[in-house]
């Protein structure tokens, strides 16, 4: 019932959950990729070094910025979910906690993204 997701006008709680799932899946996807590249070290450092150009490709760097965004969001919102789960008054502040998590996200993400984008522009 994928269409159901479109059929409901998402309140902020549903948006935060959808983003949490998407970012979680994104990070998991990268983890698989990471496992594969580490596995390739077994075939010798030369092969590993030869394939490093993939990680330096601009498209991949953009992907890494998305990865950092995913990790930051998933971590910040994860703390919010833990607070809602374990703190008996957490439910009252669910919305404020979301805005707090978003603030933490932007404080962490903006400088990181700036550094990564600068490095990417230097390479181009």
């Amino acid at each position: 019932m994928v269409s159901s997701y479109r059929g409901y006008r998402a309140p902020q709680g549903m948006l935060s959950w959808a983003l949490h799932r998407l970012t979680g899946l994104g990070v998991l996807l990268f983890l698989f990729l990471h496992i594969i590249d580490i596995f390739l070290v077994g075939y010798g450092p030369e092969l590993f070094d030869d394939l490093l150009f993939i990680y330096h490709h601009p498209a991949f760097v953009v992907g890494q910025i998305a990865l950092i965004a995913s990790v930051y969001y998933h971590a910040a919102n994860g703390i919010r979910i833990i607070l809602v789960d374990f703190w008996s008054n957490g439910y009252k502040y669910e919305r404020q906690l979301f805005y707090g998590a978003m603030t933490v996200f932007f404080i962490a993400f903006i400088p990181t993204a700036t550094i990564m984008i600068m490095a990417l522009l230097d390479e181009l």
Binding site: P11, G13, M14, W17, V84, Y91, E94
Partner: peptide
């Protein structure tokens, strides 16, 4: 339950 809060809303 994934604490989505749609129910409460």
């Amino acid at each position: 339950c994934r604490t989505i809060f749609n129910c409460t809303e």
